[in-house]
């Protein structure tokens, strides 16, 4: 295994899913820390707060973004995130994660440059390990 990820972030309103991923990350020791938001708005507000008050090192290295969420969904988050992306230099790997197998969602996710990949739920344990591992190498 490569270098550990410092800070991972999950933006998802499915509590069970979030719990399970949290467990996986704990068991497999994939990331030092984990940020969890239940919709795009919460995540965005947090990121903005970091950029205003702290160093950008506090931003996550990797984000798992769900599409269907109340208040602010994944697409809306992406549109807002693009606007603040120029305010920092840290490289963030962003995955769109959804149980939707609608090809239109896949196409739409790919149309965003800042989206590394579109992952369809469920994500296998091995896939999780690979993602975090590759991210560790890429960041090194």
């Amino acid at each position: 295994m490569g270098q550990k990820v410092e800070l991972a972030c999950i933006i998802d309103d499915d509590k069970i899913y979030v719990n399970l991923v949290k467990k996986i990350i704990e068991i497999k020791k994939l990331s030092e820390n984990l940020l969890i938001f239940k919709n795009g708005m919460e995540a965005l507000d947090h990121f903005k707060l970091i950029l205003e008050n702290a160093t950008e090192e506090k931003l996550p290295d990797i984000i798992f973004l769900d599409i269907n969420m109340p208040i602010m969904d994944g697409w809306e988050f992406l549109n807002e995130f693009i606007k603040i992306k120029n305010n920092f230099e840290k490289k963030i790997t962003l995955y769109v994660v959804s149980s939707s197998i609608d090809p239109r969602d896949l196409e739409r996710a790919k149309s965003f440059n800042l989206v590394t990949d579109y992952l369809i739920k469920p994500i296998e344990l091995k896939k999780f390990e690979k993602i975090f591992d590759r991210n560790g190498h890429a960041a090194a």
Binding site: Y17, N68, S98, S99, D102, K121, P122
Partner: peptide, 10 residues
């Protein structure tokens, strides 16, 4: 399909 899959994937 999305709604049902979110549970089955969990």
């Amino acid at each position: 399909s999305h709604h049902l899959r979110s549970h089955s994937s969990n």
